[in-house]
Design a protein around this nucleic acid. Structure first.
Lengths: 366, 366
DNA sequence: GTGAAAGCGCTAACAA
DNA sequence: TTGTTAGCGCTTTCAC
C-alpha cells in the first residue's frame, strides 16, 4: 500500500509568486521540487541534470537547466550538507591571549588572507572562531561535533597544556586539522605549517655581527609565546656562531607591548659597554626602540642599528625603512588550506609538517 | 500497512564502538537514534528532553540527558539547520579594492572583533566572505541563496554602482542585512551603522584652527572611498567655520599609499606660504608625513602640527604619540550584530540607520 | 533514460 | 507523558 504522493502540501510556492519580499524574508526559494514540476520531470532527474551526472538525454538536461535558471534556482547548501555529510566549510580557530591579538595581529590577517584565497578556488568557505587562551572549550566542542565543519585550521601561539587541550577537543571530534605556527604532537595526526623563527633570528643576528657589531642586544617578546622563545634561541645561536659572548644584560624585555620597550632600552643604554645593535623580537618593538633611541639623541642606524621581525606593512613605510625578517604569512595560510583540502578529499589525516623559510629584508635601519 | 521500522540498518554504530579514529574521521557521531536506543525511549522524547520543551517526566528527562552526556552526543547543526531553516550563522561580507585591505586594514579587524564578540553571546557564528570590488557576484549569490546564512553584515567603502549591485544581490536573496560604514538606499530595508567621518574631520581641523593655525593642509585619501570624500568635506567645513580660506594648494594626495605622501608633503612645503598644520586622512598617511617632515628637518609638532584619523594601535605607540580621531570600530561591529540578531529574531527587516560619533584624541603631534 | 523512494539528523504536530 | 510520523531539500541507489 502506497501512501499518497509525498509532496501534496507542496514545499511550495503557489506556482507564480512574484518577487516582492513581504516580510524580511521574501518568498521561500525554489527547490528541486519546483524545478521538477516546472520542467515536467522528477526531482531525481533535476538533480542529475544539475550535477552533470551521466545518463540523461541532452535535451532533458538542457531543458531542466533552463527551467532552473529561469526560476532562479540555487541548491540549498544545508540540505546538501546534510545529505553529503560535507559542508564545504572549514573553521579557522584563532587562539591567542587577547581579543585584540586575534584579529588586529598581522598574523591572523595575513594567514586568513591566504586561507580564504586558497579556499575560494574550491568553493569552500571559512567560519572564524576566535578563541581566548584559557577560555572554556565546551562551545567549541559542540561546534566541532555539530557536523558543520569539514576541517579546521588552528593557529596556536604556544606549546602548553591549554594548547594540547584544544587539540584534544579537535581530535576527539574526528575532524581533519592543520596547525599553523605551532605543530601538534604526532599522535594527533594533524598536519602543520610553521615558519622558522629561530632561523630568522639567527640570520638577523648574524647579519648584525657580520656588519661588525660586537655588542648586539635582543629585545625579547612575551615569554609565553613560542615565537618569542625561538627568536631568542636563534639570537643566542648566532652569537655563538659569531664567537660573541652571550651577555644576559643584553637581553631585555618580556612583553609585546611597545611601552615596555622604553625601560628595556634605558637599561640597555645604561650598561657600561652598551650595544651598538638591537635585534627586536618584532617590528612594533623595533619601531618603539627606534623612537626611544632617537628621543635620546641617538641615530639609527648610525649610532645603533635595529632589526625587527615580521615585516608588517608599516616596516617599509618608515623613514628609514625597517630592516626586518619577513614571514610568508599568506603562504602559511595557503599551504594550510591546501593541505586541509587534500586531507578532506582523500579522507586521510594531513600528518606532514613543514616549516617555511623566512627572509631577512635589508632596508635602512641596519 | 506499515513498513518495517525505518531504522533497521541503524544510522548506527555497532553499540559500543570504542574511540579509536580509524581513518581521518573516526567513528560517526552519535545521533538522536543512538541516544534514544540507549535510553530506552524514542527520538521524539530525546529531542524534548534535550531541548527542554515541557511535558516530560523529570526522571525521563534526566535519564536521557545523562545518556546523551555519556555517549558524548552533540546535536548535528546541519540537520537542525535544515529542519529549522536557520543556521545560527551570519556572513560578514567585506568589500574592498585589494585583498590586503580586506584583512590587514584596521577596519575589518576592529569590526570583526565587535561582530564576533556580540554574536558569541547568542551562539551565532561568523562566516567571512572577502569580496573584491568588481569581482563577479554569482558565487556570492549562490552562497546567499543557499540557505546557509541567517543574515549578513556587509562592509562597504563607497557608494557606487558596484556597491548597489552587491546590495541588490543580498536583497534579492531575501536575507536580513546590516551595512557598515556606508548606508544602503532606503528601498533595500537594510539597517546601517556608520561613523561620522565628516564630524571627525571637522573636529580635527577645528582643533588645529583653535590652536592658532591659519594654514592647515589636508592629506587627501583615495578619492574612490566615501570616507576620504567625507573627511575632506569635514575639513573644508571647519575651515569655513573658522573663517579660513579654502586654498586648493593645501589639499594634496589621492591615495592611501604612504609613499604618495612624500610628493604631497614636498608640494605642501614648496608653497610660498606653507602650512603649519596637516590633517591627514588616516593615521598611516600621518605617520609618513611626520617622517618626511622630520627628514626635512622640521619638528612635529613644533614646526608643523599633524593630526591623523582612525586611531590605529600604533598611534599611541609613536613618539610623540599621534593626535588623531578615534573610530569606535568594535562598537560598530557590535551594534551591527545586535541589530542583525534582532532582525532575525523578529523576522522584520532592520531598517534603522545610526551614525556613531568619533572622538578627537589629543596626544603629542598637535 | 527516467521515475520512485529511501534517508542524511533533526524537530514538531499529532496520536495514543 | 511518551510514541509515531512527516518532512526540511537534497543525492543516490534501484526498478522499470
Amino acid at each position: 500500500v502506497k501512501r499518497i504522493a509525498r509532496r501534496t502540501t507542496g514545499a511550495g510556492n503557489p506556482p507564480s509568486e512574484g518577487t516582492a519580499p513581504v516580510d524580511g524574508r521574501g518568498p521561500s526559494a525554489p527547490t528541486v521540487h519546483d524545478v521538477a514540476r516546472a520542467a515536467g520531470v522528477t526531482i531525481g532527474t533535476v538533480s542529475k541534470a544539475l550535477n552533470g551526472r551521466g545518463g540523461l538525454r541532452a535535451e532533458t538536461r538542457n531543458s531542466v537547466r533552463e527551467v532552473a535558471e529561469r526560476l532562479g534556482y540555487h541548491p540549498n547548501a544545508v540540505a546538501r550538507g546534510l545529505r553529503a555529510q560535507r559542508t564545504q566549510t572549514i573553521g579557522f580557530v584563532d587562539c591567542d591571549y587577547s581579543p585584540l591579538d586575534v584579529y588586529v595581529s598581522p598574523y591572523s590577517a595575513g594567514i586568513l588572507t591566504g586561507v580564504t584565497a586558497e579556499l575560494a578556488q574550491s568553493a569552500y568557505h571559512v567560519l572564524i572562531y576566535p578563541l581566548l587562551i584559557g577560555q572554556d572549550l565546551s562551545d567549541l566542542r559542540g561546534m566541532l561535533r555539530g557536523g558543520r565543519l569539514d576541517g579546521v585550521v588552528v593557529r596556536l601561539v604556544e606549546d602548553s597544556p591549554a594548547s594540547t587541550a584544544l587539540l584534544e577537543v579537535i581530535s576527539s571530534a574526528g575532524i581533519p586539522c592543520v596547525c599553523i605556527e605551532r605543530p601538534a604532537a604526532p599522535r594527533f595526526k594533524f598536519g602543520s605549517v610553521a615558519f622558522d623563527d629561530a632561523a630568522g633570528a639567527f640570520q638577523a643576528t648574524r647579519y648584525l655581527a657580520d656588519l661588525g657589531h660586537r655588542r648586539i642586544a635582543h629585545l625579547h617578546g612575551d615569554r609565553r609565546y613560542a615565537t618569542a622563545q625561538a627568536r631568542n634561541a636563534g639570537y643566542l645561536r648566532a652569537l655563538h656562531a659569531s664567537d660573541l659572548p652571550a651577555d644576559p644584560d643584553l637581553v631585555q624585555g618580556r612583553s609585546w607591548s611597545p611601552f615596555d620597550v622604553d625601560a628595556a632600552v634605558q637599561r640597555l643604554l645604561a650598561i657600561p659597554d652598551p650595544p651598538t645593535a638591537i635585534f627586536a623580537a618584532n617590528d612594533n618593538l623595533a619601531f618603539r626602540a627606534i623612537e626611544i633611541l632617537r628621543a635620546s639623541g641617538r641615530g639609527v642606524p648610525d649610532d645603533v642599528a635595529v632589526v625587527g621581525f615580521d615585516d608588517i606593512p608599516l616596516a617599509r613605510e618608515m623613514v628609514p625603512p625597517l630592516t626586518t625578517v619577513r614571514i610568508p604569512l599568506a603562504d602559511l595560510g595557503r599551504r594550510a588550506a591546501t593541505r586541509l583540502l587534500k586531507s578532506i578529499h582523500d579522507a586521510a589525516p594531513p600528518t606532514e609538517s613543514e616549516t617555511l623559510p623566512v627572509e631577512l629584508i635589508i632596508r635602512g635601519t641596519a
